[in-house]
Amino acid sequence: MNKIYINVAPIELNKLLKFESLVASGGEAKMVIENGLVKVNGNVETQKRKKLNIGDNVEFNSEHYIIALAE
């Protein structure tokens, strides 16, 4: 499982995908979320602005990520 380090929690799901370059743009982030291609904590998430906190798990494109606080 990969870790994504953030400085401030919570972070919105669409911003996380964009800032971590998991998608090419904010528009693409919204599209993949709306199409049910992203899971948060094991459940399909369709809320673009879903707030993610430390310890949340994100699954996208057959990859798993855990949100961690940057030290």
Rank of each mutant, 00 (worst) to 15 (best):
M1G: 14
M1I: 13
I4V: 11
N7I: 02
V8N: 09
A9R: 02
A9W: 01
A9N: 10
I11W: 01
E12R: 11
L13A: 02
N14W: 02
N14D: 13
N14Y: 11
K15D: 01
L16M: 15
F19R: 12
E20R: 04
E20V: 01
S21R: 15
S21W: 01
L22I: 10
S25K: 01
G26F: 04
G26M: 03
G27L: 03
G27P: 03
K30T: 05
K30A: 04
M31G: 04
V32P: 00
V32E: 02
V32C: 05
V32N: 04
V32R: 01
I33Q: 05
E34T: 07
N35K: 14
G36V: 05
V38E: 08
K39W: 00
K39R: 14
V40D: 07
V40I: 09
N43G: 09
T46V: 12
T46H: 08
T46W: 07
T46M: 10
Q47H: 11
K50M: 10
L52H: 07
N53K: 14
N53L: 13
N53I: 10
I54V: 15
G55N: 06
D56Y: 08
D56M: 09
V58S: 05
V58I: 15
F60G: 04
F60V: 07
N61Q: 03
E63M: 15
H64F: 14
H64S: 15
Y65P: 03
I66G: 05
I66P: 03
I66N: 06
I66W: 06
I67K: 08
I67G: 05
A68C: 14
A68V: 14
A68N: 12
L69H: 12
L69R: 13
L69P: 08
A70T: 13
